[in-house]
Amino acid sequence: MKPDERSMARLTAMAQTGDRDAYRTLLVECRRWLGAYFAGKVPPQFRDDLIQDTLLSLHRKLATYDSKRAFLPWLAAIARYRWVDQLRSLYRKSETVLDDSHAAWSDEPAIAARISLERLLSRLPTGQAEVIALVKIEGLSISEAAAASGQSESLVKVNIHRGLRRLAASIESE
């Protein structure tokens, strides 16, 4: 039987007392819920890592669950935090530019990743989305992106910084 919100809350309260059987059931159900939660948001090749990161965070922060409150908003907050964290690290590091580090991917996940990222970028003003795509996804240098977009180099930097901050904030406020 698929546990509902109330039984997941009860399982978590039991896990807080050290009940391992309840904890195992809880984690299995959380994995299933997280798979569905991330399905429309995260490219498939990042999803398992994100689910595992979220389960680890749930384990470390088990004490922060308040059994008087609903369970799923708590789990969703942890999942969202890990997702934003992954997005930040994905964008922050030049070695994680999609075209370089994931050259070995098959076309299908690469396209799926691209679609997911473009869906995220559609939340931003055009100027910000354009330079983020050029620099962080296409891998252009700041000067190349400035030439391609018609923006000055300093504006490209500002737009990348503001765009990434806005992206993280828009996810956090969902």
Partner: peptide, 28 residues
Amino acid sequence: MTMPHPNTDMLIEELVGGLQPVRPLSTT
């Protein structure tokens, strides 16, 4: 639907093995 990842199964078993009772964080 995401297929269960074998590493996730191992992770869950590790987390269950490492479970210790915790005192819930209280607002008061």
